[in-house]
């Protein structure tokens, strides 16, 4: 695998494509466009990196996912659905159950929301709460000292992968909420292992079925096969060394987007199989 840094999008500042205060999350849609959620808006970038649209959100969002025909934004105590023009469609208000939604995944009518406050994953179908995911194996919830719980829909659209920071592993659940697989363990020296107190922090899956996870201290992105075999990691020196909770998104063109929350920047990586 070849994993190279291509260029940087956005940043901290006053220009239209830049964010003032914070960059919370990113996602891509079927047309390979990039949605970046930050401040109180969503910025849409074309695959070429041009700012295409700015869609305001009703509240400070923490996570974003793209469905077939709509956008979902995770908030504090709720999830908002917007159409691609930024018009609010519906809002799941579930303040009793939902805390800070820091990870979202959508497949059809199924919505998975990673709740960092209650350290669990809620599964919604057609806007109705169905069950929690992962609470059987993680009797005390997901252990997230970094404050962010992230998940991603795998390429097969039948399972969801979760970054479990304190247990230093990636867990895979099917859409019934049953743990089907897990990989990774603690280690500081082998790049295939996850080091520090709590890594990996964020996760995404590529169209080719690879799983990319991000780490902090040092900040980097690692790519694994869907079975958990280590493939490659991002080159050094791309991120601010103090950054953490690097959100990830992959499009179908071999691009991997990674946020740098400290600099409010989006780093664009190219992920190509060697020899082609």
């Amino acid at each position: 695998m070849q994993f190279t840094h291509s260029h940087t999008l956005s940043g901290k500042g006053d220009r239209a494509e830049e964010f003032h205060v914070r960059l919370a999350g990113i996602a891509t849609d079927a047309e390979h466009r990039l949605y970046a959620l930050g401040d109180r808006e969503i910025k849409r970038f074309t695959p070429d990196g041009e700012l295409e649209a700015q869609l305001p959100t009703s509240d400070a969002g923490w996570s974003i996912a793209v469905g077939e025909d709509s956008l979902w934004v995770g908030l504090q105590g709720g999830i908002e659905q917007l159409d691609f023009d930024g018009k609010p469609l519906q809002r799941i208000e579930d303040a009793d159950r939902l805390g800070l939604v820091t990870g979202l995944a959508v497949v059809g009518e199924t919505l998975l929301a990673a709740d960092a406050t209650n350290r669990t994953i809620h599964l919604y179908r057609s806007g109705k709460w169905v069950q929690e995911v992962g609470n059987k194996v993680n009797t005390r919830g997901f252990m997230i000292p970094n404050g962010v719980l992230d998940l991603a829909l795998d390429a097969d659209h039948a399972s969801v992968v979760v970054a479990h920071p304190q247990k230093h592993r990636v867990e895979r659940y099917n859409l019934k909420g049953v743990l089907t697989d897990r990989f990774g363990h603690f280690g500081m020296n082998d790049p295939a292992d996850f080091g520090g107190c709590c890594n990996p922090t964020n996760i995404t899956a590529t169209a080719e079925g690879m799983i990319a996870v991000s780490e902090k201290a040092p900040p980097r992105v690692k790519v694994f096969t869907s079975e958990g075999e280590f493939l490659t990691q991002s080159p050094d020196g791309v991120f601010d060394s103090n950054t953490k909770n690097i959100d990830l998104a992959a499009d179908g063109h071999g691009r991997l987007y990674a946020t740098d929350p400290l600099r409010c920047a989006i780093e664009v990586f190219l992920l190509q199989a060697t020899g082609h």
Partner: peptide
């Protein structure tokens, strides 16, 4: 400003 640290209700 840490909000992530487990509080007594999480620890049980």
């Amino acid at each position: 400003p840490v909000t992530a640290a487990p509080q007594p209700e999480d620890i049980g």
